[in-house]
């Protein structure tokens, strides 16, 4: 895990280091494909792209704000109870997300049900607090939160794309392929690639494991320096 201590600088600037904080988690230090964290929720909420998108937004929100608050309080949090304090911060933010989602988009709330609450136990968020926010200033912590949240969200959306497309023949709930006449754009057509029968395995959890595994493989084939030599 990247335990970086960014050099203390005065003021808010956006230089090379700050850019690295944002872009590193997108690929070279991606929480899912490189650090292999947060797999549990990546399995559970990637049956459809809409769920994955809502989850990604929720995680970015929680990651950014929990990083910010922890960093703000980093000098006053008693070391003996720092994990508990971090947990309280995360749990509060997650509850805020849950209450807001229930008021704004009740159907997504119903579908995601327990998985919003399970952001509390998402290892990525607690990991960033421990590894980064406790040792860095609020501004850098916010950037780190955005980077890691988005890095997680991208993988979630990629996995959800493959699962929804091959599992249901849909993207964001809109029919793309399959034998039906419920297409969004062209309702006169009764079949688009009508020979393709949706593969129900893709909707089940094991397929997320396959897709993530293949992603990790592709990622490391593309960037060989990520391969563990040990």
């Amino acid at each position: 895990m990247a335990d970086v201590k960014v050099a203390e600088k005065s003021g808010i600037t956006f230089g090379k280091k700050e850019r690295k904080l944002l872009t590193d988690p997108l690929s070279d230090n991606n929480p899912i494909t490189v650090q292999v964290l947060g797999i549990c929720s990546a399995l559970a909420v990637t049956t459809g792209m809409k769920n994955a998108a809502v989850m990604a937004v929720a995680v970015v929100f929680v990651a950014v704000l929990s990083n910010f608050f922890t960093s703000l309080l980093r000098n006053s949090i008693p070391k003996q109870v720092r994990m508990i304090v971090q947990l309280v911060i995360i749990a509060t933010l997650v509850t805020i997300v849950e209450l807001t989602l229930k008021a704004v988009d009740f159907e997504s709330y119903k579908q995601l049900s327990v998985f919003i609450g399970l952001i509390i136990t998402n290892c990525i968020i607690m990991g960033r607090l421990e590894a980064f926010a406790l040792a860095n200033k609020p501004y850098e912590s916010i950037l780190d939160g955005i980077g890691n949240g988005v890095g997680y969200g991208i993988i979630l959306l990629i996995v959800a794309f493959f699962r929804e497309f091959f599992g249901k023949g849909e993207i964001f709930g809109f029919k793309i392929i399959g034998p039906t006449n419920e297409f969004l754009l062209d309702t006169t057509t009764s079949t688009w690639m009508g020979w393709y029968a949706s593969n129900n395995l893709m909707v089940l959890f094991p397929s997320a494991m396959f897709v993530i595994g293949i992603l990790i493989w592709v990622h490391r084939a593309w960037k060989p320096h990520l391969v563990d030599i040990s």
Binding site: P78, I84, V88, T92, T95, L99
Partner: peptide, 19 residues
């Protein structure tokens, strides 16, 4: 430590209950 935790819990509880 106890003061810190108590104050924090109280603030959080008030905010969430209000929301």
């Amino acid at each position: 430590v106890i003061t810190f935790v108590l104050i924090m819990t109280l603030l959080v509880a008030l905010a969430l209950a209000g929301m």
